[in-house]
Amino acid sequence: MRRNSLLLLLCLLLTTLCQAQSDQVDKPAAGNRYMGQIELGYLYGKVHYASQNTDVSAASPTVQVFNGYRLGRGFVVGASVGFDFYDDIMVTPVALGVRGEVLDARVSPTYSLDAGYGSTFLSDESEEQKLGGGWLFNPAVGLRVRTAESGSAFSFNIGYKTQRVSSQSNWWNNYIEQKINYRRLSLRMGFIF
């Protein structure tokens, strides 16, 4: 009796494993759960020059790559890395973020929220100037337009990005330390895969 019970348990276990493998072939979990996004755009804002007491409009390019895990249609958790160009400073933001879609339709409103740290290790520094990174925060809303049933889509979004940077300069024996808060309107378009 005990031997028959073990044999029956082994048969049930094998059929369960075979069924799980056939389900994975029909619907690959990685294809349904992974979300990747590449975005290109511009950061628009004003730059204040204290020496001339003027504000000048500025537009700087931005590139961002997001990789995430889809917990549901309306919620994706992941991380992003990118490049933001402010004046003569290049910031490399690394952030944790969430993404989501409001509707399960071909065209849907979307939302995103990223928070993390922007490093300046790739920015050009001179002996007279040292740069440091800082915290970033970037909420955005937009639209997603599907191109295929596989989940690939185009995205368009508008957001507000806050990035902190520090600068330490030593010019002609004058030591200047600045804490800079970049506050920019972000306009991006991208591709979701």
Rank of each mutant, 00 (worst) to 15 (best):
L113P: 01
S108N: 01
Y117L: 02
V145S: 10
G134K: 11
V145F: 07
R106D: 09
L122A: 14
Y175H: 15
Q129R: 15
N181D: 13
L113C: 01
Q163G: 07
Y117A: 01
N138T: 06
G100K: 04
E127L: 03
D104K: 10
L143V: 04
V98H: 00
F156I: 04
Y182K: 11
A153T: 06
G151M: 08
V94K: 02
Q178P: 06
N170Q: 10
R146M: 12
F154L: 11
Q168N: 13
A153S: 13
G142V: 01
N170R: 08
L136K: 10
F156E: 01
S126V: 05
W135E: 09
I158P: 11
S112L: 08
G97K: 03
E149G: 06
W171A: 12
D124T: 07
S167E: 14
K161G: 08
R146I: 07
W135T: 07
L113F: 11
N174W: 13
K130I: 05
A105L: 12
G118T: 01
G132N: 03
N157R: 11
E149I: 03
A140Q: 11
E128T: 15
R144P: 04
S167F: 02
V165W: 01
G151A: 04
F154V: 13
S169W: 07
K161E: 09
S123G: 01
S169E: 15
P139A: 00
L136C: 03
S152K: 03
G100P: 10
Y175A: 15
N170M: 12
V94G: 00
L96A: 11
R146S: 14
Y160P: 01
N138V: 00
T147I: 05
